[in-house]
Design a protein around this nucleic acid. Structure first.
Length: 407
DNA sequence: TCTGGGGTCCTAGGACCC
DNA sequence: TCTGGGGTCCTAGGACCC
């Protein structure tokens, strides 16, 4: 059965949200940069289309962006509003598509297979009506790509998006007709394929291969030799517009992490340990906010020379309290520092192997006993009490004393 | 121009068990 | 006493995406 897949992508989501959050400032600035502060080590998360005309790109250091576009207004990422708006967009799409997969805050894939009898119109027309509905109900504009599979629908968004430099105004919707997948792919660059990043492009560029068309002469064996067996096999299909992946609602988060790049590199172990306490407190609180526990704790360190190292430990049972997470994280930090003691530009804590403590009733007793060594019932009670106090009085300044005293 | 923060997925080697 | 192969789990690193 021919599938009908749409991929909706919010236009300049962070810029749009910044304008909604601050109509008088960001809302009036045509040249707008959203991201870190220019005097620090931050980067551009998103730039208005007008600012992009100055060569500003997301991911670029903010200092460089401001140099290129000095008249731009710079505002921080409005995190809360972005996730709220993301949910709003999704809520609209749910009214149109039976299956929705949220790919990120600003992207959703929809499978409308089977809705032919309901809509009785070309897929393009349905996409236009979805687009209008999203704008009316959320104030955000989405571009929509479509086709018979996820890959093609996502890549079609590139042609639906407004491209101020391309002359012809994009219409906001671009549908690849059934049977036109291979021909569509053949018009694109290798780097336009999601999954083909800088490293893989570099490999191919060495062979003079830049576009999909260039790469079509390679058979499976040659692709495998260039990219590795599994990537090569994947690429062979993708280059021809072939993709069988289903649009899947996925609801389980795999990890929760908090990390911070310091304004200046930290040298001392004591300073790092203080930052570890702060990060641990934040990430554990977020974990509890999701009603989850974690079995694996990972500490990540980025040295002054940008080398990134990590150390992790997996426990038999899930933990959730600040104290237990810190008790596991601290030795991991020490291990990393023992192996290499240089300036640190970034420290991070990630919690993974997440489990939901509610639901596994018959395991509960056993778990409780087994987990006793790393995390006691008292640890959990204390952590939740702190959460309640913070919910009432705000987060500022609260780092439980027990964490600071502890050795 | 010195490079954020939040994620996902894959690979490879070693431990351990059968 | 020496040698095996497969499966699973854990750890570290890396590519990639927005």
């Amino acid at each position: 059965m021919t599938r009908r897949i749409l991929h909706a992508d919010v236009d300049a989501m962070f810029v749009a949200c910044a304008r909604i959050a601050d109509p008088k400032g960001a809302g009036r600035a045509r040249l707008l940069l959203v991201g870190g502060r220019p005097e620090g080590r931050g980067v551009v998360t998103s730039a208005s289309y007008e600012a992009r005309a100055y060569g500003v790109r997301s991911g670029m250091p903010m200092a460089e962006a401001v140099r290129r576009c000095p008249k731009a207004t710079v505002v921080p990422v409005p995190r809360g509003l972005v996730s709220q708006k993301s949910r709003e967009v999704r809520a609209v799409l749910v009214d149109w598509a039976p299956v929705i997969e949220t790919m990120s805050v600003d992207e959703h894939a929809m499978d409308l297979t089977g809705t032919e009898g309901i809509y009785r119109e070309p897929l393009e027309e349905t996409a236009r009506r979805i687009r209008a509905d999203v704008e009316r109900r959320t104030g955000l504009v989405v571009s929509i790509g479509g086709g018979t599979n996820k890959l093609v629908a996502k890549m079609a968004v590139d042609l639906a998006k407004p491209r101020p430099d391309a002359g012809a105004p994009a219409s906001g919707v671009y549908i690849v007709p059934p049977g036109g997948e291979a021909a569509f792919l053949a018009t694109r660059a290798l780097g336009d394929i999601p999954g083909v990043g800088p490293k893989l492009q570099e490999r191919f560029r060495g062979r003079g291969v830049v576009t999909v068309k260039d790469a079509l002469v390679y058979d499976t064996k040659m692709l495998a030799a260039l990219a590795g067996a599994s990537t090569g096999a994947w690429l062979y299909d993708v280059l021809r517009g072939y993709d069988v992946r289903a649009v899947e609602q996925r609801d389980v988060q795999k990890s929760v992490s908090r990390e911070e790049t310091f304004p200046v590199d930290l040298q001392g172990d004591d300073e790092l340990e203080r930052e570890l306490v702060r990060l641990t407190t934040r990430v554990a609180a977020d974990l509890r906010g999701e009603r989850l526990r974690a079995r694996t704790v990972t500490v990540k360190l980025r040295d002054a020379d940008f080398r990134t190292r990590q150390a992790s430990r997996t426990l038999e049972d899930g933990i959730e309290s600040d104290r237990a997470v810190l008790a596991v994280a601290k030795p991991l930090l020490h291990k990393l520092r023992r192996a290499r003691r240089t300036g640190a530009r970034l420290l991070g804590v990630r919690l993974s192997e997440l489990i939901s403590p509610l639901g596994g009733d018959q395991l509960a007793l056993f778990e409780q006993r087994a987990a006793e060594s790393v995390e006691s019932e008292r640890d959990r009670t204390l952590a939740h009490a702190v959460d309640r106090i913070q919910a009432k009085h705000g987060r500022r300044g609260i780092v439980p004393g027990s964490l600071l005293e502890e050795e």
